[in-house]
Design a protein around this nucleic acid. Structure first.
Lengths: 110, 110
DNA sequence: TCCATGATTCGATAAATATGGAAATATCGA
DNA sequence: TCGATATTTCCATATTTATCGAATCATGGA
């Protein structure tokens, strides 16, 4: 049962988002936009200890869902929209051949 | 940090798909369509012991991603398209405010 | 250089998840 | 009823994931 690279990446991304704190982090980063948010601010907002949050940020980073840059003493995290786009595309194309799922492609259109 | 029911359900669905065998099962069920596939056939196809596969099917079922019906001695599993639809909608609406993600709504349209 | 700040790494521990054989359950045909 | 088949549940075990304080690393200001 060899597993292809795309599935591998998809599983990492799904796993990264399948956790309360990490899903919350990602949603905050999406709201924050390209400016992103510092690790400390995220920890504050979520009420999670810095070391715990660092662990979760590493998971998101490993999954390619977030980017990071240093800005003075802070490390700013940003949502990677392309990665999320890729994940949604994968789910739509590989896991969504049914009629109700076909409808989603046409939603918000016209 | 109270967590709302929708996020809770999303996390369960993401977690259910974030596993090699379960993602493979779900893809096979999507391909199979409404007829679905028997547990044993799935186990055969994936080369996973029956008891292990049963554990994974229970996870998918618990997450609401699959339905099941008994047909004689077999238990037939089917993909729940509405659930996948809901998951994709959640990701699109809550985790995808960026420009590249906005594009996906318009893909396949026109 | 020294200190404060922001963040990660380390380490120990707890909890959840995955695996698969053996036993139990359900259905059907003879 | 008996046996074969399909599947799940039980159990023990192995692995992975989550938590968080303490120690460490990096940066910038006095």
């Amino acid at each position: 049962m060899e597993i292809d690279a795309t599935s591998q990446a998809t599983i990492r991304a799904l796993g990264a988002l399948a956790q309360e704190h990490r899903l919350a982090v990602f949603r905050l980063l999406v709201q924050a936009g390209p400016d992103g948010m510092a690790a400390g601010v995220l920890a504050d907002r979520l009420g999670v200890p810095a070391s715990s949050l660092s662990f979760h940020l590493a998971q998101l980073s490993n999954a390619g869902l977030v980017g990071q840059r240093r800005e003075s003493r802070s490390i700013i995290y940003t949502a990677d929209y392309a990665a999320m786009n890729g994940l949604i595309s994968f789910l739509t194309e590989n896991c969504c051949a049914g009629s109700s799922c076909a409808a989603i492609s046409e939603r918000d259109c016209a």
